[in-house]
Structures are given as structure tokens and as C-alpha cells.
């Protein structure tokens, strides 16, 4: 089998497992009851307030900022840069390219460095800070290694060992149209793509599920109104009050 077919199978399998796994996990989060009213106080007392707090939480990582400035700094730099880098990659999946994707290309380019810098900061913390090193599991290091390797190979292609990005885009557009096109056989590209497929495969069983998970966190998504409205879900809903 040619390289193009091997990678096509890899990406189709990875896409099915990534999307299917994510849908499975999200539906299980949505079905899990939160028996107790436990918003982290001070918490908003209105639905609008909760939405606003959630928006702040996922855009500027408010609670992390309040708890640890160093983790916030590296974490926020990494996540913000990751968004730019992902948006920059849209160009490989659309023809014609949307004008704002075209517009952010140079920002995404430098965000690649910021992303890796943020990751290295977060990784240094797991090695240098004693109490964090003590609670770090192999998977914590694995996820950081994987993301650093993906960012590193991406930067290598951009700045050192270029690949044929026109052929690559034709390959990616081909995957979306179920038509397998030739894949440039540059080692750095093949490593980059294999690592991305690996990330997609393990995403639904990894700590990276904090991305959808944050929205289902009872301490973040509940309105602080226990006296106005009685909260009952799961086992608290089964308690009989007339007994």
C-alpha cells in the first residue's frame, strides 16, 4: 500500500474515533446528574451571569488566573496560540480560502512559537516544582510531549525543511472528497501528520477532554439560587420529603 493510502486510512480511523468518541463522552457528561447545588462562590445569581462567567472562564481562564499566575500565563499563551494555529490550518481544508483565514496567516505563524513556548513553560513546571512533579503522571508528560512534538515539527516545516504545501492541500481536499491524492513523502511532514492522528485517536480518552468538560462542571455552570429554587437531580431527586 502506498503512503497516501496508509495515511488516508489512518486519518479516516482517527476522525471516526475522534468525533465518535467525543460525541460519546459529551453525551455521557450531559446525561450525568449533578445531585448537589455546588457553584463556587461568589457565583452569579442569574443565568446570564453564569453564561458571562463561563465565557470569561473559557476565554481568559479567570479561575486559573485567581489561583496561580504562572500556570495561567503559560496555559493561556499556549491555548490562545493553539487557537490561532488551528485557524491558520483551515487553509488546507477549504478552497477557496476564507478571507479571514488568509488574513490571520502571519499571526498563526508566530503563534507557533508562542504555543511551543507556553507548552515548555507548563512542562518545566511539572519537572521543576517539587509538589507538581510528585503528582504528575506519565500521561501528563505524554500529552505535553505530543503537543510539543506536533508544534516542533510544524515549525520545522515552516522554517527549516519545507514541504510541498500545494500537494499537501490537494491531499487534504482529496481526503474530504474520498479521493486519495499523492502525499508528499517528506519525513517531517509524515511525522507531523502521524502525531496529529495519534492526538485525535487518544483525545477522547485523555485529560484533553477538559475542553468540552469545563462546560459540564457543576461548580462553574450552576446558578447560585439554592433558596429560590429547590435543586434536585439524580439521587437528591429521589429523596421523599413527606416521609
Amino acid at each position: 500500500m502506498s503512503l497516501a493510502v496508509v495515511y488516508a486510512v489512518l486519518f479516516y480511523v482517527a476522525a471516526v474515533i475522534f468525533l465518535g468518541g467525543l460525541a460519546w463522552k459529551i453525551s455521557s457528561y450531559a446525561r450525568t446528574p449533578a445531585p448537589l447545588k455546588i457553584p463556587t462562590t461568589p457565583a452569579p445569581t442569574t443565568r446570564f451571569g453564569v453564561v458571562a462567567r463561563m465565557v470569561r472562564e473559557v476565554t481568559v481562564f479567570e479561575s486559573l488566573f485567581k489561583s496561580n499566575k504562572w500556570i495561567w500565563l503559560f496555559g493561556w499563551i499556549f491555548h490562545f496560540a493553539l487557537v490561532l494555529v488551528l485557524l491558520r490550518h483551515f487553509r488546507y481544508f477549504q478552497e477557496p480560502v476564507w478571507f479571514w483565514v488568509d488574513l490571520i496567516q502571519p499571526f498563526g505563524k508566530y503563534a507557533g512559537f508562542a504555543m511551543v513556548a507556553g507548552l515548555l513553560g507548563l512542562w518545566a513546571r511539572r519537572v521543576v516544582v517539587d509538589r507538581v512533579r510528585y503528582i504528575s503522571s506519565p500521561s501528563d508528560h505524554l500529552m505535553l510531549a505530543l503537543l510539543v512534538a506536533i508544534g516542533g515539527t510544524g515549525l520545522l516545516m515552516k522554517y527549516v525543511a519545507h514541504t510541498d504545501i500545494v500537494a499537501l492541500k490537494a491531499y487534504m481536499l482529496g481526503l474530504l472528497r474520498f479521493s486519495i491524492q499523492p502525499l508528499p513523502a517528506d519525513p517531517v511532514l509524515l511525522i507531523h501528520l502521524a502525531l496529529v492522528a495519534t492526538l485525535m485517536l487518544i483525545f477522547p480518552i485523555s485529560k484533553l477532554l477538559h475542553a468540552p468538560g469545563v462546560f459540564f462542571s457543576p461548580t462553574r455552570n450552576q446558578i447560585d439560587n439554592p433558596r429560590e429554587i429547590r435543586h434536585a437531580q439524580g439521587w437528591t431527586a429521589q429523596i421523599r420529603h413527606d416521609a
Partner: peptide
């Protein structure tokens, strides 16, 4: 899923589309 994608990949290579 693997079998399905193998079949899809097989179909795809035969029908070189309009990329």
C-alpha cells in the same frame, strides 16, 4: 470502522474525484 474506511479508501482510489 477500520474495515469501513478500508472499503471507502478502496472506492476512493478507483474514482479519482474532482479535487
Amino acid at each position: 470502522a477500520l474495515t469501513l474506511t478500508m472499503v471507502l479508501a478502496g472506492l476512493a482510489t478507483t474514482a479519482a474525484g474532482d479535487v
